[in-house]
Every structure is written in structure tokens, then in C-alpha cells.
Nucleic acid binder design. Structure first.
Length: 463
RNA sequence: GGCGGCGUGGCCGAGCGGUUAGGCAGGGGCCUGCAAAGCCCCGUACUUGGGUUCGAAUCCCAACGCCGCCUCCA
């Protein structure tokens, strides 16, 4: 049984599914008003890993993640840049998918866009107005939070306590500072949709309820997002579902933050905060390894140091793949356990790693287990137990691939020139001309390559 | 003010009552013509002060420090 921490209950619980063998999962996606940042990278990686693991374990996962393509920030950017909202949204959505592809996050099964669901949202808001659960004031339509008796469930605080902590609200017309926008009336020049209660655009919280329920249906299984979305976003989504008398997500998952060292976060300091920047010049797999090396609910430190650390750890894995000539796995397509045959020494490994991941996705312990297995495989190979070693090494790459981390030989195509130098060096070595051999090695490394001598022959790899 | 989290060896990061986490970096060794890769060994860490316990990094209390949410945020 798969188990996962649930925010509402505050404990790890069985991830029971509404439909046997199927898991419906909604992850709040980005607002496309800017380049994706490291935090976006983390949440997408965390839930991509979860999705992949659930799939690996045999569940038929229906994974939905939205794109918020209309929002104040998008409007602001469009005005600032003298362009339209849809140009801004399209531009940054393209950047988003490019970054997702780069970090190996699989495409969701459905990608609802907020602007495609406006009529449904209008209907929902109308029904709230009809029952006085929502009310109209000068700048828009608001949701009356007092109408939901258990409001504050996700926040872990009662309505009164939340209200007491609310900051000074500029809008005096609201019944309560906690009441949130369902619909914003359009100001001159702003994009607008028709609605009986006035032209405007939907509020963010309304988008996600409508899209998640619309695509996954009542009482879907799992709703995920960053910890910061817990309140008010998820609280407000839930409040609307409750008010609409529709069973909502049965299980809530929230991932931890990305810490970027101190407050100094600038490209000039090499302290990149944009995912796009990070991906320039680093192996994207390093970020995934960094993410799975810690628990998804813990904060992680992302800095040039921790990324470089992960890159070196990755090299150790790639070296293993090179040693056994293992094929690269993972990518857009997801793996299923039933496609693999874990027998012999790898059976125990797969079983242990599986048990760890089944229990609230304990990726750090799973990774530790896998690194142990790397040592074991190398040791066995050193001792000549090649078959057994290969079996374990293979299982290591499969299990990493199950989490979306592709381990591969990284034998980049060296050019003819480098290959010729290597051949010349081999000849020199055969002739015992060590001075010449070393000189040739220097030439090879000056071109950015590393030569390795082994029983199986000379290998050239990227340094 | 309310709610919540965190402080682990040089760095990252698990563990959450008794066992070597793991990775990276560092030191020593084996292997190698020399390297690279790999393997072995090493550092003996848990903010502080009390307490509970046969036994605490792990539970309780307090203090200090850091962070998050209560406003848009992954």
C-alpha cells in the first residue's frame, strides 16, 4: 500500500484511491508571467517523481496540472511591455515547457488553461451569489468565508484566529478580511469575459477548483502543490468545493521550499534563481538528484555548491553505467515495475527501495540504499563476480529511472582528432614510451576529455 | 498577536529511543607504468540548559538562533 503524508490529518496515511487501480492527481501549476524559478523546478520534480513512482507501482495515474494564463501579473507585464496578455502567457508558457523538458518532467495528462474554463467558473460564481455565499462589491465578487463552517482546516487555524491575524485590509467593503476574490471586474484596458454580474476575469482560487473537479471529478484522490499554497489558495479552493457541496480532494500533499542561501540572489553572484539560468551549463539531472536526495517535505538548499555536489554524485552513477554498458532509461515515458524482472541479488534491493518509497516517498533513504548498491556492484565486479554485479547495477539504473533520473554512460561522441590522439597514446603505451603517452594524455585533456585505461580498453569521456 | 517548521560532523542531507544513513569535500592505503575509475580505512556530529529513561540527536520543559504562513507566491 502506498502511503503519503496528508496535510489535513497531519500524518502519513494510506493513499486510498477512489477507483481501484487508478489515481487522480491534481498539481497546481504555474502562472506564466515570468521565467520558471527554482521553486517551480522543485515542485514539478517532486510531483513528477511521485507520479512516476505511483505509475511504477502499477497505478494508472491521471495527472492534471494547470496553466494560469490570466492573472494580475500577466496583465501588468503586458502593459509594461506594450503587448497583449496572451503574448505574455504564450511566451512564458513556452519557456515553462522548455524548462520542464530539460529537467525531465513528464507532460501532464491534461493541462487545463484558466482561460478555457471561464464559463464554468462564471456558473459556479453565479450559484454562490444565488445562495448569498458570494457577494458583489465595487471591484468584484467575493466569497463569504463565514459560510464554510470548517474554513481553516488546511491552515490549521480556526476562522476567528485567522481573522485576528489578518493584516490591514484596504478594502473596507469586504465582509471579512479573509473573504477572497472570485471575480475581478475589468478596469479599462484589461482583458474581460462576459458574466451576468459584470465583465471581468476569474480569481485564481476559482480556477483550480473548477479545473480539478472538471477533469478529475468529485472526490478525486490527491491534490498537491507547494507548501505556500496550503493557505490561502488550497483552503479557498476547498471552501468553494464545500460550498458547492462537491466532495473535493481526499488527500493533500505539500512540498517544501527551496532555500537559496542568504538573501543575496543574483546572477552576478552566481546565485541563480531562475530555473532557466540554472539549466545553462549544468546537467539538469543534478537538480533532480538534489531534490530526491532530501525528503519532499523538507526545505532544500539550492546553490552552486549543492548543485556541483550533486553533479559529482551523478558522475559516480554514470561511471557505473559506463562500467557495465547499461542503456539509458527514463525520459518522457514512465516505467512500470512489471516490465522488469528483479531476481537474484537485485530482488532484495528493489524490495527495500520500494518499501522506502511506498512510505511517504522516502527518496533520501532510497537514494542512500541505491548508492550502497553502487558500491556493492563495483566491489563484486572488482572481485570478478561480473554477472551478479551487472544485475545490481542494472537494478540501480532502473530504480533511479523509476524516479525519473536517467543514469547513462555519458560517453559523448569524441571527435576524430581526440580519438586519433587516444590511439596514438595506446601505441606509445604498448611501446612503453611513457613520456610520449603522458604528453598525449595532456593533449587530450586540454581538449576537455579524460582518458581511462582499463582491462576492457581505453575509454574517452568528457572531463 | 495566532499557527507551523527547523537548528546534525568541512558542506549538503537522512535518522526521530539502543544499530555505519548516503553523497560531496578532506586524510591514509590498495590497484595502476603514472593517472582516471574503483575498492578499503579514517574523522567519531547532533544549538544550549534542565528533565524522563537502563539508555536520547531522537521524548518532555525552558532558553537562544533561524525560517515559513496568516497578502500575491510552487
Amino acid at each position: 500500500m502506498l502511503r503519503l503524508y496528508d496535510t489535513i490529518h497531519g500524518e502519513v496515511r494510506d493513499l486510498a484511491t477512489r477507483d481501484a487501480g487508478r489515481l487522480s492527481m491534481y498539481v497546481c501549476g504555474p502562472t506564466v508571467d515570468n521565467l520558471p524559478h527554482l521553486g517551480h523546478g522543485r515542485f514539478t520534480l517532486v510531483w513528477d517523481v511521485a507520479r512516476r513512482w505511483f505509475t511504477f507501482r502499477g497505478l494508472d495515474v491521471h495527472f492534471v496540472s494547470n496553466i494560469t494564463d490570466i492573472d494580475d501579473k500577466i496583465i501588468a507585464r503586458a502593459q509594461r511591455e506594450g503587448t497583449t496578455e496572451s503574448v505574455v502567457a504564450t511566451t512564458y508558457e513556452d519557456q515553462w515547457w522548455a524548462a520542464m523538458a530539460a529537467i525531465g518532467v513528464a507532460r501532464p495528462d491534461d493541462v487545463p488553461h484558466a482561460t478555457q474554463y471561464v464559463p464554468e467558473m462564471v456558473m459556479l460564481i453565479e450559484s454562490f451569489l444565488a445562495e448569498d455565499i458570494a457577494y458583489v462589491i465595487s471591484d468584484g465578487v467575493y466569497f463569504d468565508t463565514s459560510r464554510v463552517s470548517d474554513y481553516g482546516l488546511l491552515a490549521g487555524q480556526a476562522l476567528d484566529s485567522l481573522r485576528a491575524g489578518a493584516r490591514i485590509e484596504a478594502n473596507e467593503e469586504k465582509r471579512s478580511p479573509l473573504d477572497f476574490t472570485l471575480w475581478k471586474f475589468a478596469k479599462p484596458g484589461e482583458p474581460r469575459w462576459e458574466a451576468p454580474f459584470g465583465e471581468g476575469r476569474p480569481g485564481w482560487h476559482t480556477e483550480c477548483v473548477v479545473m480539478s473537479l472538471g477533469l478529475l471529478g468529485d472526490g478525486f484522490d490527491l491534490h498537491c502543490g507547494g507548501l505556500d499554497l496550503k493557505f490561502p489558495h488550497h483552503e479557498n479552493e476547498r471552501a468553494q468545493a464545500v460550498a458547492a457541496q462537491r466532495p473535493f480532494a481526499q488527500h493533500w500533499g505539500h512540498n517544501g521550499w527551496v532555500m537559496v542561501g542568504d538573501e543575496k540572489m543574483s546572477k552576478s553572484l552566481g546565485n541563480f534563481t531562475s530555473l532557466t539560468d540554472l539549466l545553462e551549463g549544468t546537467d539538469a539531472r543534478a537538480y533532480r538528484l538534489l531534490v530526491i536526495r532530501s525528503h519532499y517535505r523538507s526545505p532544500i538548499e539550492v546553490s552552486p555548491t549543492t548543485i556541483a555536489d550533486a553533479e559529482r554524485a551523478l558522475a559516480r552513477l554514470d561511471t557505473l553505467a559506463r562500467r557495465f554498458d547499461l542503456p539509458a532509461l527514463a525520459g518522457q515515458e514512465m516505467l512500470t515495475q512489471s516490465d522488469f524482472d528483479f531476481t537474484g541479488p537485485s530482488a532484495l534491493l528493489a524490495q527495500r527501495v520500494g518499501a522506502l518509497l511506498d512510505e511517504d516517498l522516502n527518496t533520501p533513504l532510497a537514494v542512500a540504499e541505491l548508492f550502497d548498491a553502487v558500491s556493492r556492484a563495483n566491489t563484486l565486479a572488482d572481485q570478478g563476480e561480473v554477472e551478479e554485479a551487472r544485475d545490481i547495477a542494472m537494478a540501480v539504473t532502473v530504480l533511479f529511472a523509476a524516479l525519473g533520473l536517467s543514469v547513462f554512460s555519458a560517453v559523448h561522441d569524441s571527435d576524430d582528432e581526440v580519438r586519433e590522439l587516444a590511439r596514438a597514446r595506446d601505441e606509445a603505451r604498448r611501446a612503453g614510451e611513457w613520456g610520449e603517452a603522458d604528453r598525449l594524455r595532456d593533449e587530450i585533456s586540454a581538449r576537455g576529455w579524460v582518458v581511462e585505461d582499463s582491462a576492457e580498453g581505453t575509454r574517452i569521456r568528457r572531463g
